[in-house]
């Protein structure tokens, strides 16, 4: 029978400094939250911009944003992460790579993971935003223009506010995906939740306890995001649109 030892979390971790194994897990949780949050901001901003470009009447912007989406959706996340961490600093222009490589090692891991997850998720958000804008009737755009708005103003005041409200549900599932995907960053050594879970197994040999704790924390994070997004959805609901009452 497996020798359950939940008290292992309260034992002082190897390597001195007085931290317990529970502290390790919490450090990991904080890292997962931090990297997810930062990538989410990048993904949302960049994804929105690219999503607008995807619907904008300009061949150049359309081509640019389409290429972005295709590249970032057709390469596995793990490979992208290795490209950001190992390859990008070697090929980056303007001495950017050399500068990056002199940062503190942990900061390098964080920045590479954040950019990778941000742009990966951004490509998905691009498509959501595009779908959101395209789902609005053509009349909305025409009405905006007829009122004397310029095209950017029409986007800003007419199309985007509606589109974003429509795509809140798919966005929230992208946000959950982002947190789950952040576990991939453990492969380059970012000390997030999954990484700490494996460390714990190495140091304590209590595989079940550590995996259960880590898995439960991921599930809890997901639930938290879903609850928060549901609240946002309620606040942002447009009266008379999408049935008002939801599901």
């Amino acid at each position: 029978m497996h020798n359950w030892r939940w008290e292992v979390f309260l034992e002082p971790a190897q390597g001195g400094s007085g931290a317990t194994y529970l502290d390790w897990v919490l450090v990991g949780l904080r890292m997962t939250a931090a990297v997810s949050l930062c990538s989410w901001v990048i993904a949302l901003l960049w994804g929105s911009l690219m999503g607008i470009f995807r619907t904008y009447p300009s061949k150049l912007l359309y081509g640019l944003s389409t290429a972005y989406v295709e590249v970032f959706r057709n390469i596995p996340l793990l490979v992208q992460l290795f490209l950001w961490y190992f390859v990008a600093p070697e090929v980056a222009p303007l001495g950017l790579g050399a500068w990056f490589k002199q940062l503190h090692p942990n900061l390098q891991l964080f920045v590479a993971s954040m950019l990778c997850l941000g742009f990966f998720t951004g490509a998905r958000i691009t498509e959501q935003v595009r779908a959101g804008i395209e789902s609005l009737s053509r009349g909305q755009k025409a009405a905006g223009l007829a009122m004397g708005f310029t095209l950017p103003q029409t986007y800003r005041h007419v199309l985007l506010p509606m589109a974003f409200r429509i795509i809140i549900p798919p966005l929230s599932s992208e946000c959950v995906n982002l947190v789950k995907n952040s576990a991939v960053a453990s492969t380059i050594g970012l000390m997030e939740l999954a990484y700490q879970g494996r460390q714990l197994v190495d140091y304590t040999a209590q595989s079940y306890e550590s995996f259960i704790a880590v898995t439960a924390l991921y599930v809890a994070l997901n639930l938290l995001i879903l609850l928060f997004m549901r609240w946002v959805e309620k606040k942002a609901r447009v009266p008379g649109f999408m049935g008002g009452g939801g599901r």
């Binding site: 789950k180 576990a183 453990s186 494996r198 995996f211």
Partner: peptide
């Protein structure tokens, strides 16, 4: 659907 694939793989290989 609520567990990261990395964790699922680690679980199953255990």
């Amino acid at each position: 659907r609520s567990i990261p694939l990395v964790m699922v793989i680690l679980w199953f290989f255990l």
